[in-house]
Design a protein around this nucleic acid. Structure first.
Lengths: 169, 169
DNA sequence: CATGGCATGTAATTTGTTACATGATTTC
DNA sequence: GAAATCATGTAACAAATTACATGCCATG
């Protein structure tokens, strides 16, 4: 449901293809939401049918023609209305955390491995974020990046703490 | 899908009703996942049909009889198998963050309001977490609580930073 | 010559939310 | 007297993932 507005919002910044939107979200907005083609394309079609976006087909050589979408006035207004409403609560699912909590019957070694895997994942994410951070111009994107970075660092500290705690036990 | 294992895992700790499970998740595991009755009860029925759990009906006066579920050996093994597999990636949706990012056409005042609302929400969450923290005995529950607290604090710091930044701009 | 990027899309399935229905008891 | 707690459940719907299909180009 909020994917509609994600799309509209990104198209306000600049006209794009579905493919572009996906890249954009993966690169800079992963802390806020995610987007798969299976959601993106059908949603774009719906928005088109509703007149919230329009399409401009750009033919290409030996490739499906690009469909560059841009927002209509109607779309802008739908977005503005949505923006002014209070945000829905966060929806969060961290399977890693659930497994850690339920890991009573696992060996200490297995638990340590879980933590190590997670740590590597978060460190990788941190690197990615820092790399992206350098390519940013738009201040609002900086906000989101800072958010993601802060949470990453907090989690890393928590992981370090836990690891040493478990060793001591 | 991971709700199956959430249920199994909690039932390993002790037999419970669907209602109890819900309370348990809301109280101590909100950083990992969530659970609504609409998911919980049907999932319990499925687990029962598969022989992963068994039920013991406890009649009550002027109330539907309690259905206390407990895990079978089969259920335990299903859980153990799942636990040893690598965890799925986090699934995160923060509508608040998305709105903040897309808030270009809002007034500065509206943005400040969004931040203030979020801040109050996180502060409330923090208080709740701290209250729950005192009732905890199980060390693994402490881990999860610490996780939630760390992220809360990181977000609060980020919010404070942002607020002052925007004022300056 | 395989991998990954570019670029579109569909269909089946899973997953989950929301809202509803029921109804007594306790607490403010 | 209203609201929250206890306690179960279903049904309709919305949302999203996954896997698939297609096919060229560039890079290593």
């Amino acid at each position: 449901m909020s994917h509609r507005y994600l799309i509209l919002g990104l198209l306000v910044e600049q006209p794009m293809t579905g493919y572009d939107i996906k890249k954009r979200v993966d690169a800079g907005l992963s802390a806020a939401t995610n987007a798969s083609y299976g959601t993106l394309y059908p949603t774009l079609h719906k928005l088109l049918a509703e007149g919230a976006v329009e399409v401009q087909e750009v033919p290409q050589v030996s490739r499906p023609s690009k469909k560059v979408y841009h927002v209509t006035e109607r779309g802008r207004q739908a977005l503005a209305t949505w923006l002014k409403q209070p945000a829905a609560a966060d929806q969060i699912r961290r399977e890693f955390l659930l497994k850690l909590y339920l890991s009573q019957d696992l060996s200490e070694h297995e638990v340590q491995t879980m933590l190590a895997v997670r740590k590597r994942e978060i460190q990788t994410l941190l690197k990615t974020l820092r790399a992206e951070q350098k390519r940013i111009q738009h201040p609002r994107q900086v906000w989101i990046m800072d958010y993601a970075l802060s949470l990453c660092q907090a989690e890393l500290e928590w992981l370090d703490n836990l690891e040493t705690q478990i060793v001591r036990v």
